[in-house]
Design a protein around this nucleic acid. Structure first.
Length: 463
DNA sequence: TCTGGGGTCCTAGGACCC
DNA sequence: TCTGGGGTCCTAGGACCC
């Protein structure tokens, strides 16, 4: 074990919402909720102003709206978050070469890898404060909370204790007593199911867990989980900070606004998902052997079907063909609320597979991305047809007998101001593009404009 | 007004092999 | 009359994380 608190856990405060407030001054100091804004959306991040009303991550957006109707509800802008994240991670890498990102808004930093040793609590607190200042400067004002300790576990828990914009350093040697009074759920990996089982064994705090024998713990929660939990409870955590972890799987999934029963439509959507997975594999120079199709039924039960090929592939036609077969084997009666396609058993090489090459058929696809009022817009272009789904700026039209049509919007800056390119991929029309003036960027998007009513209208239109 | 999307890791059973 | 026994691969599901 280390003798100084040289592992930092850095956690950006309300990250997605904070980026939106940074970019739109009118949202500063206001309730902002970022997440899915459709009928089945959930909250990704709520600003601290929105949290006062009980809005939380993973809550359905519908519930968030009822708790906090006046908040600004925004769809996520991942490209912008990625950019901000990179600027923040660069500041950490300037401090130490050993940085382990956990997500866009979180990372561990191992100070011992930069040659520092014998750090006191005061040393580490000063380093953490300097890092916070550097992050704020580099990111245009974002704040972070930092925890520090002799292990990942302690650093991670500490970063949560003084949010937002705080620093907590746990002195070496005090770890077990630091953890003892806390609820078991502070330990990462202890979710609702484990907490429930532990509770039935009379375990609620980490102190309770420290008392429980390892054998009993393993009986309750299984071998791997039990033994790792036993170690974490007594703060015996020697997991190293690891800077580059290999990707294990790549997947795409989508929850539909209304359940889909039509098998041929699901097949078309699955084909498109296979193509998106393939694009992402190719971009990352990866390929994989196992194709998985995921379906979620109307009652939320979830099923997976997978099939493993002889060799790895990144070919969209191969992935689509296997996915089709797996989907054909899936029960779709009663309706599907979610469909997903994924590839795992990844390799960084590709087998030339003549067999699959020759057998794969070209899959016709058409898709489109949309602006703020996608459904109305699409319905205008395709009167009388069924706009089946819109999400994250993409919309699908179905029922024309020409396959799945997709529409995509892109905003470009020109000297005359922003314009949007509206591109429809429609097999019957070949490709169709229009340029339209951009709608003004709504600076006060939500407060005046009850997005809920717009959604309800568009929902009615679709049905 | 239930319940996203992208992941990771683990378990358990059956097939198959030596 | 019982019924090897370990190892690997594959599939399906579940818990959990941000």
């Amino acid at each position: 074990m280390r003798t100084d608190p040289s592992i930092l856990h850095v956690d950006l405060d309300a990250f997605f919402a904070a980026v939106e407030q940074r970019d739109k001054p009118s949202l500063r100091g206001k309730a902002v909720v970022v997440g899915g804004i459709g009928l089945r959306g959930v909250v990704s991040t709520a600003s601290y102003e929105a949290r006062k009303y009980g809005v939380r991550s993973a809550m359905s957006t519908a519930e968030a709206r009822s708790r906090c109707p006046h908040a600004a509800y925004l769809g996520p802008r991942f490209d912008v978050y990625r950019e901000a994240s990179q600027a923040v991670m660069a500041q950490m890498r300037a401090l130490s070469p050993l940085v382990e990102p956990l997500s866009l808004d979180e990372a561990f930093v191992d100070l011992s890898a930069s040659g520092l040793s014998g750090l006191t609590v005061e040393d580490v607190a000063a380093i953490a404060n300097d890092l916070k200042a550097a992050i704020k400067e580099a990111s245009g004002g974002l704040t972070a909370s930092v925890g520090a300790g002799t292990s990942k576990l302690i650093a991670k828990i500490a970063s949560d204790l003084d949010k937002p914009d705080g620093v907590v350093v746990v002195p070496a040697g005090t770890e077990a007593e630091f953890l003892a009074p806390m609820q078991v759920t502070v330990i990462p990996g202890v979710g609702p199911a484990t907490a429930q089982r532990l509770s039935m064994a009379g375990v609620r705090t980490v102190a309770d867990l420290q008392q429980l024998g390892q054998d009993e713990l393993i009986r309750q929660v299984g071998t791997a989980h039990g033994s790792s939990l036993h170690r974490l409870a007594v703060a015996a955590d020697d997991r190293p900070v690891v800077s580059d972890r290999e990707t294990k799987s790549v997947s795409v999934e989508d929850t539909f606004e209304t359940d889909i029963l039509d098998r041929s439509l699901l097949t078309a959507i699955g084909d498109r998902m296979a193509h998106r997975v393939s694009e992402r594999l190719q971009k990352a120079q990866l390929s994989g052997r196992t194709v998985t199709v995921k379906t979620r039924m109307h009652d939320f039960t979830t099923h997976t079907r997978s099939s493993t090929l002889a060799g790895p592939t990144d070919d969209p036609r191969v992935i689509a063909r296997v996915a089709r077969r797996l989907l054909d084997d899936s029960d779709v009666s009663g309706g599907i609320r979610l469909l997903g396609v994924g590839v795992s058993s990844l390799a960084d090489w590709i087998q030339d597979d003549l067999f699959t090459e020759s057998e794969a058929e070209e899959v016709p696809l058409e898709l489109v991305d949309l602006p703020e009022r996608p459904r109305e817009r699409l319905a205008g272009y395709y009167p009388g047809q069924d706009v089946v789904h819109t999400s994250y700026g993409e919309g699908w039209v179905w029922g024309s007998g020409r396959g799945l049509v997709t529409v995509r919007f892109e905003t470009a800056s020109t000297p005359a101001g922003p314009v949007r390119t509206f591109a429809i991929d429609d097999p019957a029309l070949s490709r169709l593009e229009r340029t339209i003036p951009a709608e003004p960027e709504p600076d006060e998007p939500v407060v005046q404009e009850p997005a809920l009513s717009a959604l309800e209208e568009s929902g009615a239109e679709a049905d």
